[in-house]
């Protein structure tokens, strides 16, 4: 008997670890699916009114029965999604509590995020007059054309490699993401807006509820090329609703302050089992005068100590 008990203890420990890591979501879904028919049957029996029996003639018409069955299945699907979401939030809460304890004894952050302010020179690429002016000024300093001008459509900023601007850095207006530096020269930088067709970034949906905000699904924000954005790669088990807010999941692959992308204006679960989520950006490009380029920098105080 001890052998059986020890085996089960080992199984429990394995399941616990796997669940903590997040490997068991699909297993949980499979279990829910296996149990669904029996559970629906039990629920249906349990919901019969007092005094009636399973063999009693129903008072519903066929169409009403079909409607009720559909509603029951929809509720079941929703219940599963809520169950998984609940479990995930429990995990997040536990890890947050652990992290809070760790942060309490740690000192300074290794990586800081700073915002370099930049004025917008143009909303539609580098103008010819500026291009010529840059080339003339650069020739005097022995710089080549490729080091001076950037080609392409989008916002042109008055900051370049001289100020530490580099391709890929996020550009924000307040906390709202405007786009990403796509090309950079000595003195200017070109911004690819988040609505551009080639733009993509890791995002996380934040749901607003009366009891407070909570993190939702992670996905990939892509520009539509027509002034809007969409979020793809959201698992079918997650829930998304109109009005949810969209924040960055990380900054250039590094965890940092959460920047805001916009609000969900359309969320539909298609018959193919995928979410169609549309996002309205949080800024209007035409009205922008000044933006900030978000850069990550190593904490020199800490790296200096480490070298000694």
């Amino acid at each position: 008997m001890w052998f059986g008990t020890c085996t089960m203890l080992l199984l429990m420990a394995t399941v616990w670890v796997a669940n903590t890591v997040g490997y068991l979501t699909s297993v949980r879904m499979a279990l829910q699916n296996v149990m669904s028919p029996a559970r629906l049957a039990v629920a249906a029996i349990g919901s019969l009114p007092a005094g009636s029996s399973a063999t009693a003639e129903p008072d519903f018409t066929d169409s009403e029965v079909v409607e009720l069955q559909n509603a029951l299945l929809e509720n079941e699907l929703q219940r599963r999604q809520l169950l998984i979401e609940n479990a995930r939030l429990h995990n997040e809460l536990r890890s947050t509590k652990r992290m809070a304890a760790i942060e309490a004894v740690s000192s300074q952050d290794l990586v800081d995020f700073v915002a370099v302010k930049a004025k917008i020179l143009s909303h539609a690429g580098l103008s010819d007059s500026l291009r010529e002016a840059f080339i003339d000024a650069g020739k005097a300093q022995g710089l080549q054309r490729s080091q001076l001008v950037v080609s392409g459509a989008g916002l042109v900023l008055d900051k370049g490699t001289d100020q530490g601007i580099a391709a890929g850095q996020k550009v924000a207006h307040g906390t709202a993401v405007v786009g990403r530096i796509s090309k950079v020269s000595q003195w200017v930088g070109l911004v690819q807006p988040i609505t551009a067709e080639d733009f993509s970034a890791a995002v996380q949906i934040v749901k607003l509820a009366p009891q407070g905000a909570s993190y939702g699904a992670k996905g990939l924000l892509e520009g539509t090329g027509t002034g809007g954005c969409r979020v793809t790669a959201i698992p079918y088990t997650e829930s998304v609703a109109v009005g949810d807010e969209v924040f960055s999941a990380d900054i250039d692959g590094v965890q940092g302050p959460r920047l805001y992308y916009g609000r969900v204006v359309h969320a539909e679960f298609s018959a193919g089992g995928e979410w169609d989520v549309r996002v309205e950006p949080a800024f209007q490009a035409d009205t922008l005068q000044e933006v900030a380029v978000v850069q990550q920098r190593l904490n020199t105080a800490r790296t200096g100590v480490a070298r000694q």
Binding site: M1, L11, V15, N19, L83, A87
Partner: peptide, 20 residues
């Protein structure tokens, strides 16, 4: 016996998996 342990253990583990 061991079979009882295994049956009860699996049931309790599955339950924990469904309602962690």
């Amino acid at each position: 016996n061991g079979a009882g342990s295994v049956l009860a253990g699996i049931a309790l583990t599955v339950h924990w998996l469904l309602q962690p």
